[in-house]
């Protein structure tokens, strides 16, 4: 089973487990299954995105430091980060597909994911749309239509996007929770803060958001009927 966690600021930055009907805070006394490697990823900059497994056997898909709409007077945004994790090998192919989708169009995912949060009296998360996103990746084969995406999706090497000037600075702190040998075999991509995407011209955008919207609509229609 996959579990989703997010770091979001609600009265200060906190880590939450996002379940279908509840947003629960992770605390020292109530860890809610958050893996140790997840705490490390949530606590540091340097890694923008990682999809791999940790030394405790958790499969991990993590996206760091995504800007929310809300900005302060200096133009700085509140940010959120996301972790999907599973111990079940059966979840890996889907997680891998999602990872490839997100990694190649991070700016789109950033605005999608951050918009799922809203503050009414408490913190709310739109799990319906998030689930629809998952489902759309399962249903729609066109999302992995190009060679690059489909190849990376079926491989098992880590996918890592780093923000530091060189990859080494970003990777080194991870070696206590992730196997060094494995990380070194990863697809290493460099983050570009200006375009909010990876620096790689060979990757074509496929625009997955319209597809997701289509599927969300489809799901809503089915539900209505």
């Amino acid at each position: 089973m996959m579990t989703v966690y997010a770091q979001y600021s609600f009265g200060g930055y906190k880590i939450f487990r996002l379940a279908e009907n509840a947003v629960e805070e992770v605390t020292g006394l109530n860890r809610l299954g958050l893996p140790q490697s997840g705490i490390q990823l949530f606590s540091h900059y340097g890694i923008k995105f990682i999809c791999t497994s940790d030394i405790d056997g958790n499969y991990i898909l993590f996206v760091n430091d995504m800007p929310c709409k809300e900005k302060d007077d200096m133009g700085r945004s509140k940010t959120c980060s996301m972790l999907i994790t599973s111990k079940d090998k059966a979840d890996v192919p889907l997680m891998r597909r999602i990872a490839v989708m997100i990694a190649f169009e991070l700016d789109v995912f950033e605005s999608f994911f951050s918009s799922l949060f809203s503050i009414k009296e408490t913190l709310a998360f739109n799990s319906t749309d998030f689930k629809a996103f998952f489902d759309s990746v399962c249903i729609d084969a066109s999302m992995l239509s190009d060679r690059l995406r489909s190849t990376i999706a079926i491989k098992s090497n880590p996918i890592i996007i780093y923000t530091t000037s060189d990859a080494k600075t970003a990777l080194e702190p991870l070696y206590n929770r992730f196997e060094k040998k494995n990380l070194r075999k990863g697809f290493l991509l460099k983050w570009d803060e200006n375009t909010r995407n990876i620096k790689d011209n060979s990757i074509e955008r496929i625009g997955f958001m319209p597809l997701i919207k289509k599927i969300i609509n489809k799901i809503v229609t089915i539900w209505k009927n």
Binding site: G12, Y13, K14, I15, T27, L29, I39, Q40
Partner: peptide, 16 residues
């Protein structure tokens, strides 16, 4: 460090 991390009850305090 973020002020939140000063709280010993947080997982970030314990591990980081």
């Amino acid at each position: 460090v973020p002020g939140e991390f000063t709280n010993p009850q947080k997982v970030e305090f314990q591990s980081e």
